[in-house]
Simulated scan of single mutants.
Amino acid sequence: MVARGDEGRPHGAGHLYRRLRASLRGWGGVGAMAALCALALAFVLLLPLTQTHDVGADEGTGGGHVATGSQARADNCENPEKQTLSPSGADGPTIDAIKSRTGAKRKLVVGVDQNSYRWGYRNPNNEDAELEGFDIDLVHKIAEDILGDPDAVQFKAIPTSQRIPAIQEGRVDMVVRTMTITCDRIGQVAFSAPYFKTGQQVLAPKSSTITGYDKSLGEKRICTATGSTAYTKLDGDKKAGKLPASADISLTVPNQLDCLVRLQLGEADAVVTDGALAASQAAQDPTVELKGAAFTTEYYGVAMKQDATDLVRRVNQILVDYRVNGWQMSYDNWLSATLGKDSAPSKPPAPQYLRKS
């Protein structure tokens, strides 16, 4: 198990590595080596990224105030991916506060992942091991538009379960971290228009009898990330009788990559996560594969505070241009190797802006 503190720092890495090495005895050859390499990569990627502090406490974004927003938006939700504000290039109080930061603090503070291969990860093959990936490209584009410098970014590694608290408590200006737009979440944070289309899928060892999101998951241990849409789907389907009652969904972890490690350790039989992330995990370990087709349709959005209306509108304006100039290039660079050269299934729909205020 990869245990972490509040900022996602791995502890006991050597112990976990020894456990995995012991569990792989008998696998032999490429499979064992691939799994060990994947775990080694995971440990590199999970190195601490930065110290966490309240953005608002010293940078003028409202301190630790939790923006409650309008819970009615969640209660009356329909088509959550459309519940966003129309684009605008105008500045407002939130953007003014970001621009007023001085010196080394004049940066956009963004919550990201640092261990999702090809989305937001530290590439150990690069000299500086800088963060890179599809989400990271978008962050640089937003920073360039708002602050005139694509590198004017302070990245903060945020575990899956901490994405919403980090926004509400003012620790970050926004989260760009494969975050699905859902009805529950739009009652807590504001989202941009979608920038990516995906869906939940099952990841399991190639040798597994699991065939997809079906009765083959009976009596299987399924791993999901805490606070993820995957767990919400599993929990709801199990209560509704749409998932075998014997399926064990109790195993949850702080970050999605931890599920791949649990799979390699033999502590889980399957992983359920966004297909885009599952494909990246399969690319890290040739002994696992996607099982069955996607069984949901979901959209990623940039998440911000509920009352940061000027920032939401600005990001939506940036996305209007990015969908035409930048999105495809980023897809080709980072995701075509894992999701295929045809980007059409992943392209977001034409945006609709149904939120009025």
Rank of each mutant, 00 (worst) to 15 (best):
V2M: 14
D6F: 09
R9L: 15
H15T: 14
L16C: 12
Y17W: 14
L20V: 12
G26V: 05
V30L: 12
G31D: 11
C37P: 03
F43L: 15
P48M: 03
Q51W: 09
T52K: 07
H53I: 05
E59L: 15
G62P: 01
Q71C: 14
D75W: 13
N76I: 11
N79G: 14
D91M: 01
T94L: 03
R101V: 08
R101H: 13
R106T: 02
K107T: 11
D113H: 10
Q114Y: 03
N125E: 12
N126V: 02
D128W: 02
L131G: 04
E132F: 03
F134P: 02
I142R: 05
A143T: 03
E144V: 08
I146D: 02
L147A: 13
L147S: 08
K156W: 10
A166C: 08
V176M: 10
I181P: 03
R185F: 09
S192F: 04
V202R: 05
P205T: 13
S207D: 09
S207L: 05
S207C: 05
Y213T: 09
D214R: 00
D214H: 00
L217M: 10
E219N: 15
I222E: 08
A225P: 00
G236T: 07
K239H: 04
G241P: 02
P244A: 14
N255H: 02
Q256D: 15
L265A: 14
G266W: 10
D274I: 02
A278V: 01
S280I: 01
A294T: 05
F295V: 12
T296Y: 06
T297P: 12
Y299R: 05
Q306I: 04
D307P: 04
D307T: 10
I318R: 02
L319E: 03
N325M: 03
M329C: 00
D332C: 06
L339P: 03
K347A: 15
R355M: 14
R355G: 11
